[in-house]
Simulated scan of single mutants.
Amino acid sequence: MKPCAKSLAAMMLMVLLAGCESETGKDVNGKAASSSDVSYFFGARIIPGDGSPAMEDMSFIVINGKFTAIEKRRELNAPKGSARIELTGRTVTPVFANLQAQPGMNNGAQYGPKNYNRDSLTADLSRYAYYGVMAVLTAGTDSGDLAFSVRDELRQGKIKGARLFTAGQGIAAKGGGPQPLADITIQVGGAADAKKTIAELADEKVDAIKLWMDDGNGKGPKLKADAYTAAIEEAHKHNLKVVSEVFDLNDAKELVKAGVNGLVSSIRDREVDDALIAAMKEKNVFLAPALTAAEAKFVYADRPNWLGEQTMREVYPPQLLGYLADPVSVNKFKRLSELGDLRQQYATA
């Protein structure tokens, strides 16, 4: 198997538009697709996802849910007794992961914890899966036991949707964090508060820890250095990774220095410099830029054409589409006093 195929085989893959069957649900011989544990897929266009070129007319073998071989179609034969599924005209790509998700919080015109319930949460997870986002981290917007029960049901196969990972309630400074989430965030004043909060979240079996450095837009009270340092150190003692939203370049540098594992927003006060990039590389800190979150704060003032595209209409909440396309809503976005700043911040990101 070629090196790029080996790396691809280690990933979870999805077949865009088709799942893992032909359109008729039958194999190339016209028979119902086998329930065998061995399947032979052929004719696919594969995008490895590592920056290398797409691979055309490929075949791959899946045994017990794992990719065991990926080669050119002419170089890979179907195992005896395997199900044979043709994917000509289909594209296979690694699934996407969202590390800055807030499922269940939006009902159209309103965003916030009061919209959060089982139906809204599972509906959003289904939408993520439809678009190929098969794993999401709810970054600090889960309160109560709901996310944990849904997470476990997904892992047990009782319900379908994107795989859910939860950070429970996010941590912010006293009086800080996003204002719409004031009732969810755990606000800490110093190191002692931070350590106690991390221990409690670990007991709740969260999958990660989420920090808000400020309100998400570079405003409001910021987490103090002793608080976020203590939170990161305590989380690592519990084998939990820590992610943080951050707006200012200097804050990002301090978080990286303190040992944060990932940044889940873009720096928007100024251009990122070589010093931050070098520090992130040295400490293996990842970045999830959350560009759509920054863009969503202003883009609806422009009535984007993609709101009317078929892929949006198919599964996007109709009440949300209606709200965003309403001239009243469009004008509301246009009248935002910070509209110019938001556009500039996005350009900087």
Rank of each mutant, 00 (worst) to 15 (best):
1 M>G: 09
2 K>C: 08
2 K>D: 15
2 K>P: 15
2 K>G: 07
3 P>I: 06
4 C>E: 11
14 M>W: 05
22 S>T: 15
28 V>L: 09
31 K>V: 08
34 S>W: 00
35 S>C: 07
37 D>P: 07
40 Y>C: 01
44 A>F: 00
47 I>M: 13
55 M>K: 10
59 S>L: 01
70 I>R: 02
76 L>S: 01
79 P>F: 00
84 R>S: 05
93 T>G: 00
94 P>H: 03
95 V>C: 13
100 Q>T: 13
101 A>P: 02
101 A>M: 01
111 Y>D: 08
114 K>F: 15
117 N>R: 04
126 S>K: 14
128 Y>R: 03
130 Y>G: 08
133 V>M: 05
133 V>I: 14
148 F>Y: 12
148 F>A: 12
149 S>L: 11
152 D>A: 08
154 L>G: 02
159 I>T: 01
166 T>F: 02
174 K>Q: 08
177 G>C: 00
177 G>F: 01
180 P>Q: 01
185 T>P: 00
189 G>D: 06
190 G>M: 01
191 A>H: 00
193 D>L: 02
200 E>V: 07
201 L>I: 00
203 D>K: 12
204 E>D: 11
207 D>G: 05
208 A>R: 06
211 L>R: 04
213 M>F: 04
217 N>G: 14
222 K>C: 10
229 T>M: 09
242 V>S: 02
242 V>E: 03
247 F>T: 14
252 A>E: 01
253 K>Y: 05
253 K>I: 13
254 E>Y: 08
255 L>I: 05
257 K>S: 11
262 G>W: 07
265 S>Q: 07
265 S>L: 09
266 S>I: 02
268 R>D: 03
268 R>K: 15
270 R>H: 08
270 R>E: 13
273 D>E: 11
276 L>S: 05
278 A>G: 12
280 M>K: 05
281 K>F: 06
288 A>I: 06
288 A>G: 12
292 T>C: 10
292 T>Y: 12
293 A>Q: 15
294 A>C: 10
295 E>N: 12
297 K>T: 15
299 V>M: 14
302 D>S: 11
302 D>E: 15
303 R>Q: 15
304 P>A: 03
305 N>V: 15
308 G>W: 09
310 Q>L: 14
312 M>C: 11
313 R>Q: 14
323 Y>L: 07
323 Y>G: 08
324 L>S: 06
325 A>Q: 14
331 N>P: 08
337 S>Y: 11
338 E>W: 11
341 D>R: 13
346 Y>W: 13
346 Y>R: 10
348 T>I: 13
349 A>N: 03
